[in-house]
Simulated scan of single mutants.
Amino acid sequence: MRLAGRTLLLLSFLWAESEGRRIWYEEGPLYESTKLLIAEQRFRADQLWNDTNQAIYAQAEQVQQAKDTLDTHQRQVSARLEEFFDHQYTVEWGACFKQHEREVAHFNRELIDKYSICRQSLDNVMAHFEQEVVEEASFLNVAAQKIADLAKICQVWQLKQSNFNHAGVLLCTVAGIGGINQRLASSLELCWDILLEMSLEELDTPSCSAYHQLKMQFDAVYAGIETCVME
């Protein structure tokens, strides 16, 4: 709405000139209105980038946290398995080891397999994020500057002078802002579509769910082994 309002304002100035009418303080209002239009659109583009950048950072952090949590769980599993097999010949662990040896060996194989699949799944999500979102977001990052550059590209300074081509300057400015905004809207839509795909549900893949469920079962079994040893 702001763009439309400012565009109408500029076109009204243009129409007034084409009719041979004098614009009040001809060297001021037209130039200032055009500069204000550019400033407003630059501010809007900058705000869109800031909001999107925050969402991108939050989503990247979410994926990284999922990977860190997975790695932490697997290190815990590895430490417990190592402890279990290292103590297999001690008096305290002997009987308990024999009782749970096959069960723990099964957990060992399954947890490693499911960990690898889950880790690969999360790596793929991050790779998709980096390839798709970052590429589109790069335009969002420079859109505000591109709008600001229109002041120089369209030679807005000419609007201060009555003997220059005001119509060309206005059309250049309005068309330039329109083209940048169109590209901005397209990039913004694609970025948010991908971010929505990378929701918590997307990170909780079947392979990752299977891993975490299996680890909970292993934790219960290991707690039983520790109880066995204490008895």
Rank of each mutant, 00 (worst) to 15 (best):
N53T: 11
T7E: 15
S121I: 03
Q161M: 13
A58Y: 06
V125F: 12
H212Q: 12
A127K: 10
L9C: 04
G178V: 04
D193M: 03
K35W: 13
S33D: 02
Q76D: 14
W24I: 14
A60F: 11
I194W: 08
D71F: 12
E135G: 08
S78D: 13
S162C: 02
A175H: 10
K114S: 08
N53Y: 12
L48H: 10
Q59H: 11
C208A: 02
F13E: 04
L36N: 14
F164P: 02
E82V: 11
G224T: 08
L37E: 07
L170Q: 02
L200E: 15
I194C: 04
F43P: 04
L14H: 01
E110V: 04
L188H: 06
M126S: 09
S78E: 15
F129K: 00
N141F: 09
E27C: 12
Q65W: 10
K67D: 07
A45L: 04
I194G: 01
L159D: 03
E110S: 10
L37I: 03
Q213D: 15
Y31C: 02
Q145Y: 06
W24A: 12
A175Y: 09
P206F: 01
L111A: 01
G94C: 04
A105N: 02
E231K: 08
A210M: 10
C118A: 04
L184Y: 01
T52M: 07
W49N: 14
C208N: 01
E135I: 07
L203Y: 02
T227F: 11
A60N: 12
S12D: 13
L70S: 00
N181H: 14
V125Q: 10
C228L: 08
I112N: 14
E83M: 03
G94M: 07
V142E: 10
R44W: 11
S116H: 09
Y115N: 09
V156G: 00
Q158L: 11
A175K: 12
L122R: 03
F84Y: 08
C96H: 00
E130Q: 13
S209L: 15
A60S: 14
F129I: 07
K146C: 08
Y89I: 07
I112E: 14
A55H: 13
E189D: 09
S209Q: 15
E101D: 02
T205E: 02
A4N: 12
L203I: 05
E202Y: 12
N141T: 04
L184D: 01
Q65T: 09
R44G: 10
S199C: 00
L188G: 06
W157F: 13
K146F: 06
L214P: 06
D193E: 04
M1I: 05
M1V: 08
S187R: 01
N108E: 14
L10A: 02
A210T: 15
A210R: 12
I112C: 08
Q76W: 11
I56H: 03
W93H: 15
S209P: 00
L36F: 11
V77F: 12
M216N: 09
A4F: 06
I194F: 07
